[in-house]
């Protein structure tokens, strides 16, 4: 797909995709959001900060094209241009994979800052896919961010960890440490949401989670079979066949770019004939 780059001078906005807890959908979201931004014509790069456990490359479907990585660039073994992988589907999208062999101490604040500075000169959006936890990799992924997408599942441990991460975003980042700087704009992306279970009272509602975390909502991504299907073949959800999940991510991306989009929460399946006849009495 050929998309036209929108502006001459890039926006250079750094967005961290973080969560604290693992397995909530950070990498899926980083892939979907970066592909969604690129699809809208923004020059976008997505960086994998999960040093040692490289995964973004598989979700993006470029795992066989990795030659140099993020750490090689930090350590001066490769030029940034050599490490960036151009997406084959969208010419506005690039991927900066992480290292599989080094340990997370290889990420230095100075190194990350230098790379982000170079990327800002060229890209509209720099999406940082954070590792789980709150250790070095996660700290480095969020430190230079302008915006944060906190991926949360409607489940107690995920909400607790998100709260912790929101605390770190407002205290352990450059924007937090710089006097007079605007704080990081943090928003919640609720994933694996199951409307049916919510209606049965088995799952916290969107409102419950927002009331607890007290930050704006970027979007609600329903639990969807499309996510696993897309990851199986290395396609970001928004570039695969349309699904409830892909639409939710597209809406979230539009909100990120400042477009007002009505919040809609759509489940995966339409109710079957039986359910329609007998309502939700099951």
């Amino acid at each position: 797909m050929t998309t036209e780059a929108k502006k001459d001078s890039p926006l250079g906005r750094v967005i961290v995709i973080t969560s604290g807890k693992g397995g909530v959908g950070k990498t899926t979201s980083a892939a979907a959001i970066s592909a969604g931004l690129a699809k809208q014509g923004f020059k976008t790069v997505v960086i994998d900060f999960d040093v040692g456990l490289r995964n973004l490359d598989m979700i993006m479907g470029c795992e066989r094209r990795v030659v140099f990585d993020f750490i090689n660039v930090i350590q001066g073994d490769a030029k940034l241009k050599q490490a960036l992988i151009k997406d084959k589907r969208l010419d506005t999208l690039s991927i900066l994979p992480t290292s599989q062999t080094r340990d997370k101490d290889a990420l230095t604040k100075e190194g990350v800052e230098q790379i982000l500075k170079e990327l800002k000169a060229e890209f509209d959006y720099i999406v940082c896919d954070s590792p789980a936890g709150i250790e070095r990799g996660a700290q480095m992924a969020m430190y230079f961010a302008d915006e944060a997408v906190v991926v949360t599942n409607p489940e107690v441990s995920s909400v607790r960890d998100s709260d912790r991460v929101l605390g770190l975003l407002s205290s352990q980042t450059r924007r937090a440490e710089t006097e007079g700087a605007e704080p990081i704009k943090a928003q919640v992306l609720l994933t694996r949401y199951d409307q049916e279970r919510v209606e049965k009272g088995e799952m916290m509602t969107v409102e419950d989670v927002l009331e607890i975390l007290a930050v704006p909502l970027l979007g609600v991504v329903p639990e969807s079979k499309a996510v696993l299907k897309a990851s199986n073949v290395g396609t970001p959800v928004v570039l695969d066949e349309p699904s409830a999940a892909s639409r939710a991510y597209e809406d979230a991306v539009s909100r990120l770019t400042g477009t007002q989009v009505e919040m809609r929460i759509v489940g995966e399946r339409r109710p079957g004939l039986f359910q329609r006849l007998f309502g939700r009495a099951s």
Partner: peptide, 18 residues
Amino acid sequence: KTAQTAKDRLQILLAHER
């Protein structure tokens, strides 16, 4: 409803953790 229990537990816990 277990969802309500989840919400209540989180609110109490986070008030202290914060």
